[in-house]
């Protein structure tokens, strides 16, 4: 187990380093770092001071060392627009993104699994076919387009829900959250559905395929032959067995939710860190872009690591095959 953990941890560190090199290469090597990292409105003296602080007058490998050292200390530069440390600005936006991602995850599981099981039990029924057709659309249509349709239907035509923003927030465990106020909740519904649709389609397909496979197993036939109610067969015998692959996918896809939130947040003007990234790109606020990328990479890599470790605890076959390979 320790061998596996060390190995997996090494891979994660490698991934983070690779991304750091990519970001560093992008900022320092391709463009002129003076343009990238220093506010274009700065005076000559400020430019000289910043160049010295960031070590831009040194050779490239030394600069990389300084970049890594500063990054490890949480110093990823200061925003041109806000004039404050870039990391602080992003961390302020983090709760909004996390709330959106978690609510979307809950939605995609709570709707996706029942629909997938239903379609798997009756694959040739009209309902089953409709669910599959819907999931193919949810899977292949661009996320921003689905979000726009949601806005067009529910905000513009029907006028039931607000089209954007976060609404009223309230304090919960020291964080500002939307889902506890009525106004916040109405603002949350559409973006959460939008972000959930892609994962939901994925879960539907997976749950359907596994349900079809499991329903043919002898123990399910035996459970039915024993005269158990259909409800019990589905809830206990089928559901328990399809959860293993579904839970894996949910874990692995959690990290990508944070990245997909960029699109949803932009469409719905949700004040999370994804929208901050797009705003920063448009304003050329590059320290914030760099800080966002490093933080997101850290989040995704950590989630993947956590999921893998938990999964290998549950299923010893995985760490055995990893150790051989």
């Amino acid at each position: 187990m320790i061998v596996y953990l060390v190995r997996r941890l090494g891979q994660s560190l490698l991934a983070i380093m690779a991304m750091a090199v990519l970001v560093f290469a992008g900022v320092y090597a391709i463009g002129n770092p003076v343009d990238v990292l220093i506010n274009p409105e700065a005076t000559q003296a400020e430019i000289a001071a910043t160049m010295q602080r960031l070590g831009l007058d040194r050779p490239l490998y030394e600069q990389f060392g300084i970049f890594v050292k500063n990054a490890l200390q949480g110093d990823l530069g200061s925003s041109f627009v806000y004039g404050r440390p870039a990391l602080d600005i992003i961390l302020e936006r983090l709760p909004a993104t996390m709330e959106l991602a978690l609510v979307a995850l809950v939605l995609s599981v709570a709707i996706g699994i029942p629909l997938g099981v239903w379609a798997g039990l009756r694959p040739d029924s009209i309902a089953g076919r409709t669910i599959m057709g819907g999931s193919i659309l949810g899977f292949s249509l661009p996320n921003f387009w689905q979000g726009m349709l949601l806005i067009l239907v529910f905000a513009v035509i029907l006028g039931w829900l607000p089209a954007g923003g976060r609404g009223e927030t309230t304090e919960f465990l020291g964080l500002q959250v939307s889902f506890l106020t009525w106004d916040g909740l109405t603002h949350l519904i559409l973006p959460a559905i939008n972000l959930a649709l892609f994962k939901m389609s994925l879960i539907i397909r997976l749950a359907r395929a596994n349900t079809r496979e499991v329903s043919l197993q002898d123990y399910v036939k035996f459970a039915r032959a024993k005269g158990l109610s259909g409800r019990r067969v589905v809830m206990v015998h089928i559901l328990k067995n399809i959860m293993i692959p579904v839970v894996t996918i949910i874990g692995l896809e959690l990290g990508s939710m944070v990245a997909f939130a960029i699109v949803t947040e932009t469409v719905f003007a949700w004040p999370g860190m994804g929208k901050l990234l797009i705003d920063s790109i448009n304003l050329l606020d590059r320290p914030v872009i760099v800080a966002y990328l490093m933080l997101t990479v850290l989040i995704i890599v950590s989630i993947n690591l956590l999921v893998d470790v938990i999964y290998s605890l549950l299923d010893p076959r995985i760490r055995l095959s990893e150790m051989k390979g």
Binding site: L14, A15, A18, M19, L22, V23, G26, V27, I30, G31, G255, S256, A259, F260, I262, V263, L277, I281, I289, L293, T296, V297, I300, V301, N304
Partner: peptide
């Protein structure tokens, strides 16, 4: 494997933000 462990949209955004 390393590349596929990151969402495609994130990698594309990184590149275009820099380029």
């Amino acid at each position: 494997d390393l590349q596929l462990s990151f969402p495609a949209i994130l990698i594309a955004l990184i590149l275009l933000a820099l380029l």
